[in-house]
Design a binder for these strands. Structure first.
Lengths: 148, 148
DNA sequence: CCTTGAGTCTGGAGTTACTACAGACTCTAC
DNA sequence: GTAGAGTCTGTAGTAACTCCAGACTCAAGG
């Protein structure tokens, strides 16, 4: 059970839906252990790599940063009751997600309003541009946790 | 009315809540026009710069990318009815924001569930770790438009 | 006039999480 | 043995800043 699947990087990539370059990137930054190599230097992965990579992808899909994924993996690696620690990481991330949703909803509200005024307006100037030039009220107030 | 406020970068930075480095960055990438200089090479800004920088910050606070801000500024600069064009940019961005909210809500749901199971669980293994190792159902399904 | 301390200058590197090459090499099947 | 697909390394690019070093400027006080 030490994983002897012996698959090349392309197969691993396909099985996990991960870009080949991304797999190598994960290895470079230490998320995925360096696999065995063929005589010619090809990476050969086992089932343990497959599992670990799936773990990473799922955590990423839930919005965990690579640093958080690293933490979770470390916790998962040590058998003895990491559950409380895991919960701390996950709960913190959940708070993050909540804050982002709140921010985005605020954006959405202002955007909707302004676009609506834009559609209604028949004047010579644009309500959207006006808002950006002169409103302090709507935007620019909050730090905005969400980055693009 | 061609803006002769003559303030240095630090003052501009304070007035707009923008980092000094960010102001220079905006100039470098062409969002903010290069201001006049003092004899010693200090940047000297006028009220037009102040207005433009405020525009940029408000648009950014609404989640517009710098490329979008660039577009909006160009549209704002040309007097003749850019409102329809502005609305196109803003509406597209609004769709973006909506999609991100949907994604984040999905994340939030799964995270909440799993954290809750984590809190309830008294067994020896962690439901969060389990989910990441074995669930295909919850995560990894959607491409996730939101990046951190 | 000189000094001092805060402000500003430039250029370059670092951040996150990848993605995209180029040019060389390997592997497999025929 | 050769063709074609797969893989290798290393480097550079993306977005939107942020930070740093080392040099220079500016305004006020003595």
């Amino acid at each position: 059970m030490d994983g002897g699947g012996r698959i090349a990087i392309g197969a691993l990539s396909k099985h996990t839906g991960t870009n080949i370059e991304t797999v190598r990137y994960y290895e470079r930054v230490g998320l995925l252990p360096a696999p065995a190599r063929s005589s010619g230097g090809y990476r050969l992965y086992g089932t343990d790599h497959l599992k670990r990579l799936n773990f990473i992808r799922r955590a990423r899909a839930l919005g965990f940063s690579l640093a958080e994924v690293q933490k979770l993996l470390t916790l998962a690696d040590q058998r003895r009751r990491p559950c409380a620690d895991v919960r701390i990481v996950a709960a913190a991330h959940l708070q993050d997600v909540k804050a982002k949703i709140a921010d985005l909803r605020q954006m959405q509200r202002v955007l909707k309003d302004t676009v609506a005024r834009c559609e209604a307006g028949t004047g010579s100037h644009c309500p959207m541009i006006d808002a950006l030039y002169t409103d302090a009220e709507a935007a620019a107030r909050r730090p905005a946790t969400v980055r693009r």
